[in-house]
Amino acid sequence: MKILVTGFDPFGGEKVYSAIDSVNRLPKEIDGASIITLKLPTVFNESVQVLREKMEEIQPDVVLAIGQAGGRFGLTPERVAINQDDAVIPDNKGNQPIDQTIQPDGAPAYFSQLPIKAMVEAIKAEGLPASVSNTAGTYVCNHVMYQLLYLTHTTFPQTKAGFMHIPFTMQQVVNRSNRPAMNIDDIVKGIVAALEAIVAYQDQSDLKVIGGATH
């Protein structure tokens, strides 16, 4: 089993970025699955070109994309990506699409193909906060999640895919008061737990546990 795990490079003026920093620390193998990592540019469209090229090269069984959600307390597997770009800030090459459809022939939304609830429970079992998220935003994270799932529906039917957001690292909140953060070693532990759940549930349905929200 081959799992491709991606992480974005820093954006918005950040010098460090929890996504790629944690992805770079992942082991090469988890429960018999080979872990291949890839840095994605935080750039609309270009990020997906890089991702698609890697998928064509290695033909992964699973892709888990990792992004940073500054302000969240825990690790949050995403349930759904929507067919819309609406960038609150420019990406790393100055692109700022507003109210743009990502794929004209794509579905209005695609749901994660990963066992998101099992992933949450596995992370919690490590003593770390986690929950299902029902919005991946409308920035490059949602763009990549949507494009990734579009690819698995149209070009890579053998691949399952999904996205997970992670919090700031402690280093990133030194000069940010009242912002939640997590030690990078714990973030890595949480990602590993999520990947263990993906391997364990590769041939079975996700857990039937509550993961919804009132708002």
Rank of each mutant, 00 (worst) to 15 (best):
K28P: 04
P97G: 12
P129C: 05
R72K: 10
Q59H: 15
G71Y: 05
G137H: 03
M145Y: 02
V132G: 05
P108K: 08
M119C: 02
K124S: 03
L128I: 15
A109T: 13
A87L: 09
G67R: 03
N92S: 11
H165S: 06
G67M: 04
D61R: 00
T101W: 07
I35T: 13
M55P: 02
N95P: 11
A136M: 07
K93V: 14
N142W: 03
E46I: 11
V132S: 03
P27M: 09
L148N: 04
E78W: 10
K28I: 09
P108H: 08
A136C: 05
L51D: 01
Y146L: 02
E121S: 00
A136E: 03
L51I: 00
L128P: 05
Y146I: 02
I123T: 10
N142P: 02
G106S: 09
L51P: 01
D85S: 01
V80Q: 02
V43N: 03
P97S: 10
Y139Q: 10
V62S: 00
T155G: 01
V50I: 13
K117Y: 04
K117T: 09
D85E: 04
V140W: 05
I30L: 10
V88E: 14
Q171G: 13
P77L: 03
V63F: 08
G162V: 01
M145R: 02
P90C: 12
I98C: 08
N45F: 07
E56K: 15
Q68K: 13
P27F: 08
S133G: 10
N134V: 07
Q68I: 10
P104Q: 13
F168M: 10
N83S: 06
R79S: 08
A65W: 02
K117M: 11
M170N: 15
S34Y: 09
N92C: 08
V43I: 13
K93M: 12
T154R: 10
N134D: 09
P27A: 09
V88T: 15
A122H: 07
C141T: 01
G106A: 09
R79Y: 14
H165V: 07
I66Q: 04
T42Q: 05
G94P: 11
P97R: 11
K124A: 04
P60D: 09
S47Y: 00
Q68G: 04
D105F: 11
F168E: 06
N24L: 11
G127P: 06
G127E: 08
Q96C: 15
L64F: 06
G70K: 12
E56T: 13
P167R: 11
D85V: 01
K124H: 02
A130H: 05
D105C: 10
V80W: 00
D99L: 12
G67Y: 06
E29G: 06
A136F: 06
P41W: 00
N142M: 02
P60Q: 09
M164D: 05
A125Y: 07
P167V: 11
S47D: 02
A69R: 12
L26P: 07
A122L: 05
R25Y: 00
G106N: 07
Y146H: 04
T159F: 08
L75H: 01
L40P: 03
L38A: 01
A81T: 07
